[in-house]
């Protein structure tokens, strides 16, 4: 976002892009169609099911180029323009090919104060790419993200619209990258409040894959 403040330029999207997927690839299986039909049945109008359908399509195709958006719209029977507007609205829908792991490092106010940019720059250095870029092996994409709603455990990041990694430090990032390179996605971590340790025995969730006790966030070394 900081780049946008310095250079607030919105570019025109390619209005006639070459399709990425061939006609043969652009199909939903029967099972997927059934699933989409089930999404549609959950809402009074088919327009409402567009977000879940996109999610399904993104898991299948990896990202949402215009032809996939059109496929989703046609499957639901809604206008392509409406679906395209929704897809461009949400940053979690990837309109371009990304790395296998997308690391959304929060750089919004709270995280920034607690070192969000320190973490982002460290990752850039470590992976030798800039924010918004993908590593050559296609494994990692780094992005700066706006508030992901976990200010209490700042700084933090999210892995490919999935699990959060809390209370980041350089060591933790090293470990995370190593684990991801080994094909191990971080678990869903439930963070408990430190004051609950004494009174409620930690008040840990029994259904969480992992738990962690909250800690006082560090102060940032740099701001932008």
């Amino acid at each position: 976002m900081s780049d946008f403040i310095k250079h607030p330029v919105v570019s025109l999207p390619d209005r006639a892009p070459e399709p990425v997927f061939s006609k043969e690839e652009l199909v939903f299986t029967e099972a997927e169609k059934e699933q989409i039909e089930a999404f549609r049945a959950q809402y009074p109008t088919p327009e409402s099911a567009v977000m879940k359908t996109f999610w399904l399509a993104q898991e299948k195709f990896g990202f949402l180029p215009p032809e996939v958006i059109r496929l989703a719209a046609d499957t639901l029977g809604i206008p392509f323009s409406l679906a395209y507007g929704v897809a461009t609205f949400y940053t979690q829908y990837y309109k371009a090919q990304k790395g296998k792991y997308v690391l959304d490092v929060c750089t919004c106010f709270s995280c920034q104060l607690c070192g969000g940019y320190d973490m982002l720059r460290y990752l850039e250095e470590k992976l030798d790419i800039r924010e918004g870029e993908t590593t050559e092996d296609g494994l990692f994409t780094i992005q700066g993200a706006e508030c992901l709603g976990a200010c209490g455990t700042a700084p933090m990041l999210q892995v490919t619209n999935g699990p959060y990694v809390h209370n980041l430090s350089r060591e933790k990032l090293d470990a995370l990258i190593d684990a991801l390179k080994a094909g191990k996605k971080p678990p869903f971590v439930s963070v408990t409040l430190p004051q609950d340790e004494d009174d409620l025995g930690g008040n840990r969730r029994s259904d969480a894959e992992a738990t962690e006790v909250g800690q006082t966030p560090p102060a940032a070394e740099t701001f932008e």
Binding site: P13, P66, I69, F80, Y84, G85, T88, F89
Partner: peptide
């Protein structure tokens, strides 16, 4: 349709239309 979000949004035709 209106594309993008926040300060970046504006009306546009979807690609190819």
């Amino acid at each position: 349709t209106i594309i993008e979000r926040g300060v970046k949004n504006y009306p546009m035709t979807p690609p190819g239309e």
